[in-house]
Structure formats: structure tokens, C-alpha cells
Design a binder for these strands. Structure first.
Lengths: 330, 330
DNA sequence: ACTGCGCTTGCAAGCGCTTTCATTGCACGG
DNA sequence: CCGTGCAATGAAAGCGCTTGCAAGCGCAGT
């Protein structure tokens, strides 16, 4: 009944060539003679052949599968990067297996193991893996591993990111330059935010400022937290003059709650975000933020992957930097 | 040098059993004798064996790979659903290949073909496939196909969604009940939004209302469009009393721009959104929206997939409905 | 003791490709 | 006219796993 799906052999027979030639045509069209290519093309159309990549993966030890591990995608700052990566990889003929590692990377190990079992060609991590054993495990594996959004001292393989600490320091410098005196930090509970907060605090204090107050919030961070964070300001012994938020969402929520309370931003309270989401530039007032070029990260990932596919070597540490974007809110 | 990765054989030898038994242990632990299982478990640990799923897929004609096709993930209303699905599927031992079909589903066919080539166990579509040839193609394939967020007359295989037209009608009924007279629609250029707008307009007019004015905006819709949409109201011959937005993002941006212009929402201008994002309930004023239970969609998808995996049959049309959530903005 | 049954296990045949190696055919220079 | 070399192709050996089939085993029933 169900006439089994056509295979390479069927196409080959139809075209009057061997399976090997069809395979070559599929993977390296330029090595087969023009006339042959034409016959094969016709045969493929005639049989409506769809290659079986599972078989190809086994035989060729190349799955064309890339694993992307991210904490979440609900409203994540990584989404733009992930989207660009998927786009680029797809046009190279790869597919992306998206795995969620959850807050605190709770499922990180399980997902890395799954990626290894699938024999993906590369694993793209968000943030850096802290578990030493896991790092070794990955290093021992022939798979390409790219750590993004962070710059560890010794990358497992390749790291593409920036220094969160430096970003924090830069924001401290920026706000100090604008004359603010009493910063308050709203810090999502992720190692990256924590690092930025450290950088901010260290720099601020070293420059003679008073120790910033701080509030920690759960990840993933969102709009509602901004509102709550605003209310929490009331509990502070002294009112801050600027609130440094760990994400643009929080900043937006905080601004809206402040405005609803009749507080003018930035005159009475300045606010900064992080991530420079598109919304930050559209908000009223526009939000001062830190821009990370997610597209650039995606491009670098693609570049590295292409280089690897071509058998070339690449740098192992790529700093994409960041930029404080001064806008109306601070 | 690089001692080749351990295979099933290596584990088998180590455990003193045949490869077949190890395979069975891996896929059906309960069929191997307790003592044997223990020896195999030890052997796996000793050799740090990681199964090769590519080989497993070829031999077992089951990839445990699910393709999820969505238009985008940048700030998509589908993200919650996708996230829940990935979570659920991962805990069943599957992996999700996320493919982006782009605005207008420009890359839909290419990605469906890729999914077919990978021999995924199921394809989860966002929205319904309009290309008749493609629908036939999918029907002819043994793969499970689930269309979500829509309810076509004749699903390719299984459809899990709701009627966008009915949602539009319901919103018309709701606003009319509240006494609004001059609605203005901000409609993203997607077939789903379009359908809701049609439903709204038909109902509104049938109930004796004046034809709503409308503005079309590009997808993916975002905050900034809301601001622009507000400004565009000035071009209208008559000022609307309620703006029905195709997404909560647009509604939020519109509200903020209106407020910045000194307009009180909802007193002077009411606004509704769609999607009931978390933010909608946190905004000032809170946004009246239409809730789609994305988690429910995800759960139904899982249920269907599990049933299929168990060889059972399932309903082919599952209506998850929607609910107008009345809040402050309208 | 013999038969039969259920539970475990092993054997071996693939799954549909890729790739190495060898072969063929042909153009070309000597 | 023959030897060379290159371009194009074919033959066949896997890639590492799953699974149908059959056999071994211990035990209950007769």
C-alpha cells in the first residue's frame, strides 16, 4: 500500500547512475558532470525524493544539527541573537535544536548530554558553564562549543561575548559623570547580572561613591517586577536618585509605576536599563540602556562555525563589547 | 590518539552481554533482567558511553526530533507556548528543532522540507498552511502534523487552536456592550489578525455599528508601532473612542503615547490588546485583552504526541477557546 | 521425566546514506 | 600511435544502532 519512500537508489536507477553519484550531486553539485546533474535533477523531481538526513548523519558523521542552549525564550534578551543565529544557520543548511536550560541552568547538564547524544556539530551555550567536570567533558569532545554572552578566562573552545563586569563599571562611570549620587540596583538573580552589579559597585565605591543599595529579583525578569521594584523603594532609608535596572523590562515597569505615582522621570528619579531592547528607544521617556549587539554575536557565531566547517581555526575569544546608550531616562 | 568514542559494543563487552541487550536496556529498561541491568549500568558509567542517536534514528526509524515552525521568536505571542512545548517534549526525551518561517511564512516550505528530510517524528505548525499542494504533501507523509493557533475546516492531521474570527466577534460584542461607538482597528499584517479584524467588523456592523476605521501595521508587531498608531489617529476624519489593537505590545505603546499627549485612558480613549501577555495585567492602566491559553495549547500538543507515540488515535480538532479579559483600559 | 510456557538473551540482517579506492574514458603532448 | 593525466563515475565497505526471530533456561503441570 504505502509505497515506501524513495531512496537514493531509486533516484539513481531512474537517472541511470549509481547512488554514489547522486549523493555527490546532493552534497557537491559541482563535481558531477553537467549532463549527469541534469538527469539527476529530473530523477529527483520525478520520484519526489526527499533525502534522509538521519542516514546521512550516520554515514557522514556530520549531522548539520546545532544545539542552542538558552535559559528561556519567553521574553529573553537573547531572543534576537537566537533568532539571527537560527536564520543564518538555516541558510547554511543546518537546523537548530533549541534546548531550554531553565533558571540557574538547572537542566544544563541534561541538555548538554542530549546534544552530545545527538552528535550535533556544535553546541552554543548562553553564558558560561561553571561546572568544571562538564567543561572537561566538553573539551574532551570533538564537538565545537561556543560560549556566548560571557568571556571566561579559558574558554572551553570558543567564547563570544563581553565583560559583564566592565559593563557594570562603565555604567557607574557614566552615572557618576551625570552627577548622580545615590544609585540603587535592581539585580536579577543570574550570574551575569550579578557580575555587572559587582562591577558597578566596585567602580562606584572606588570613585568615592556611597555603597549602592540593591534589590534582587527573580529571573526571567519582566515588566511587573519593575513596578514592584518601584514600590520597594519606599522601604529604603533614603530615596535613591537613580535606579540601575538589570533589564529594560524592569526599567520600563519601574518608570510606569513611578509616573503613575506622580514622579517625574528623570527629574525626580532617573532610571537605566540593560539590553537596549527596541522598546527602550520607543518608551516615554526613552530609556538609557546598555546596548549589546546581539546581531554581532550571531554573526560571529556563524563566522566561527563556517570557519570550523571549512577546517580552519579561529580566535578563541571574541569580545563584542557593549555601549552605554544615553537617553532621556537618566 | 583520540581513542574513538565508545559504542554499544564496548559497553556490551564490558558488561558481558550482547549489544542487543544493551540497546534494550537503553530503550526499555524493564525488559532486561535486574542483575543484567545493573551490570550494564555499571559498564555505561565505566566507559562513559554516550548513545549515538543518529544511528538510533536510522535503525529505529524514530528520530525523537520534533520540528516547531514559528514565524519568529523575537517578541512573539507564541513564545510561551513554544517554551512550554519544548519543556514538555524534552522531558519525554525528544528534542525540538526550532525553525523560523518569517513574516508571511516566506520560508515555510523550505523549512517543512527540511523537517521532512530530517525525518522528524512530528511537525508543529503555527497557524495554518494555506498552500494546497503543501497540505497534500504533508498528508501523504507518515509524519504527525499539528497545526496550532488556528482551526482549519479540514486539518492536515490534527489542529489545536481557536477561531480568530470568533475572537474578533466577541471583542465587538464586548465593546458594544460597554457603550463604545467608534472603534478603530490596528491590524498586523498576518492572516490571523486579519481574520479577527473581519470577525470584529462583521459583528460590529451587523449589530448596527458604523464601519470601523483601520490601520495596518507590519509584523512582528511591537511597542513602537503602538506609538505611531496613536499619532496616526490624528489623520482620521473623526476621533475613535476605542482602539482595538492586534497585540498587547501595540496597545501598550499606544497607551503610553496617548498619556504622553495628555490623553486619559480609558476616559478619553479606550484601548484593547490581544494575547493577554503578562505585561497587560501589569500596565497602568491594566490592558483589556483577549487571553489565549498558550499553556493549554502546549499541553494538548503533548497529549496528542504521546497518544501517537503510543499508537493511539486522537481527535483531529481541538478548540482551546479564548476569553476577553476586561481590565481598566476599555 | 517430559512438555510447554514465559522470560531473557543473542544472532544477524538491515536502516539509507557517505566515502575511499579503483576504474573508465577521453583529451592531449610527444 | 601511445603514454599521461585528469575528470567523472561505480563498487563496496562501513557508520552504530534496532529489532524480528529463535534459542536457552528454569519452572509448573501432568
Amino acid at each position: 500500500m504505502a509505497p515506501r519512500a524513495p531512496r537514493l537508489d531509486d533516484v539513481a536507477a531512474q537517472a541511470g547512475v549509481s547512488a554514489a553519484t547522486v549523493s555527490r550531486f546532493l552534497n557537491n553539485p559541482e563535481v558531477v558532470a553537467k549532463a549527469t546533474a541534469e538527469r539527476i535533477r529530473a530523477a529527483i523531481a520525478a520520484t519526489s525524493y526527499v533525502p534522509n538526513m538521519a542516514a546521512g548523519a550516520l554515514a557522514g558523521s556530520r549531522t548539520r544539527l546545532i544545539a542552542a542552549l538558552v535559559p528561556d525564550i519567553a521574553a529573553s534578551i537573547f531572543n534576537d541573537t537566537v533568532e539571527s543565529m537560527i536564520d543564518g544557520l538555516a541558510s547554511d543548511g543546518n537546523s537548530v535544536v533549541l534546548a531550554l536550560t531553565g533558571p540557574d541552568n538547572g537542566r544544563l547538564e541534561a541538555e548538554i548530554n542530549m546534544a552530545l547524544a545527538r552528535r550535533v556539530d556544535a553546541i552554543i551555550l548562553t553564558g558560561i558553564v561553571t561546572n568544571a567536570e562538564m567543561r572537561e567533558r566538553l573539551r574532551a569532545n570533538p564537538v565545537t562549543v561556543i560560549e556566548t554572552w560571557g568571556l571566561p578566562e579559558e574558554p572551553i573552545d570558543v567564547a563570544i561575548g563581553f565583560s559583564h563586569r566592565a559593563a557594570g563599571e562603565e555604567m557607574a562611570r557614566f552615572l557618576r559623570g551625570r552627577g548622580y549620587r545615590r544609585p540603587h540596583l535592581v539585580v536579577p538573580r543570574s550570574s551575569r547580572s550579578e557580575r555587572r552589579a559587582m562591577g558597578f559597585t566596585d567602580r562606584w565605591v572606588r570613585d568615592g561613591g556611597v555603597d549602592p543599595t540593591r534589590l534582587e529579583v527573580n529571573v526571567p525578569s519582566h515588566f511587573g517586577q519593575g513596578r514592584l521594584s518601584y514600590r520597594a523603594l519606599a522601604d529604603l532609608p533614603e530615596r535613591p536618585d537613580v535606579v540601575v535596572c538589570g533589564s529594560d523590562w524592569i526599567a520600563q515597569g519601574l518608570i510606569i509605576e513611578a509616573q503613575a505615582a506622580g514622579i517625574r522621570v528623570p527629574d525626580q528619579l532617573a532610571v537605566t536599563g540593560f539590553g537596549n531592547l527596541r522598546m527602550a528607544g520607543d518608551m516615554r521617556p526613552t530609556i538609557t540602556s546598555v546596548d549589546i549587539d546581539g546581531g554581532r554575536i550571531a554573526r560571529e557565531v556563524l563566522r566561527v562555525l563556517r570557519a570550523r566547517a571549512a577546517g580552519e581555526t579561529t580566535e578563541t575569544k571574541i569580545d563584542v563589547g557593549f555601549r552605554v546608550i544615553a537617553r532621556e531616562s537618566a
